[in-house]
Design a protein around this nucleic acid. Sequence first.
DNA 1: ATTGAAATTGATAATCGTTTTCATTTAGAG
DNA 2: CTCTAAATGAAAACGATTATCAATTTCAAT
Lengths: 147, 147
Amino acid sequence: MMKEFLKTKGFKITPQRELIFRSFFEMDKHVSVDELYDKVREKDRSIGYSTVWRNLKLICRVGLAQKVNMGDGITRYDRLTKVPHGHLFCLNCKRVVEFNVDQVVGILANTAVENKFSTRGFKVEVQGYCQLCQSESEKHADDEEIH
Amino acid sequence: MMKEFLKTKGFKITPQRELIFRSFFEMDKHVSVDELYDKVREKDRSIGYSTVWRNLKLICRVGLAQKVNMGDGITRYDRLTKVPHGHLFCLNCKRVVEFNVDQVVGILANTAVENKFSTRGFKVEVQGYCQLCQSESEKHADDEEIH
DNA sequence: ATTGAAATTGATAATCGTTTTCATTTAGAG
DNA sequence: CTCTAAATGAAAACGATTATCAATTTCAAT
Ligand SMILES: [Mn+2]
Ligand SMILES: [Mn+2]
Ligand SMILES: [Zn+2]
Ligand SMILES: [Zn+2]
């Protein structure tokens, strides 16, 4: 499991690291450093922010998660899923719904090949307002990252 | 043209504003504040950074451009195109190739409807390495925002 | 043309998320 | 147990973005 996996990769096991890893995988997807930090601190008030940050980076480095950036200034970390997926991102409440992108990725892969691009990943996002936030949609006519 | 357009929207015309707007539309797509600032300063060394930044925001507010965020920490501004487009983003040289996303957007629009989402925009990106940078692709196995 | 309110500017400072630094502690191989 | 490299935590540095504010400028109304 986790410990062995890290050891084989040459990383040491520390109580902090264990707690951070465990907490990350217990949480919802799309976790920010701050969110994880808060969660971790519920269990151990002595863990530093840098340690959380560094271990989140490590989780990415060993291929268990990926950064995602929805366009609000906050970097979130998404557990790696076997099949790629897209995000419906609510511009108001920031909630995220994931959806299957098999068909879309097929098209994109072709496009990449046509452009002699060596593909490393896809980002497929729909930005808008979830059902609950629909009424608020007039605000923010501008400024959002819609593309 | 530009002046009339801004006036009807209730904004004032200033020499700085004119220069900034003009420069933006003369430049390549996907311009950062800094890049635009440099360009503007070639013509007028007295214009402040804040003015460039605010006017770039204004360009977005009046619907002539949109923020884009490729995953390196820099916000860029993309001229609004009549038809939406996707981006092939080279993780090495940061170059961007645009491509048509009609088909993809069709699919995504359906997905959004199925999820009762009120759509405001799409983001379709393929990250990888352009033909020129293909050899360097081993570096950066982690850390990038691939999703 | 003059006036005056409101918008704009430019310098600067504040903010915010991220990343680095560094002295100290700890893990784990030998 | 010992030693070295890795990891930690506090703090500072960093870089991009955004806010503040006094001075200037635009432009609609006289
Ligand atoms: Mn996700
Ligand atoms: Mn573009
Ligand atoms: Zn919502
Ligand atoms: Zn390239």
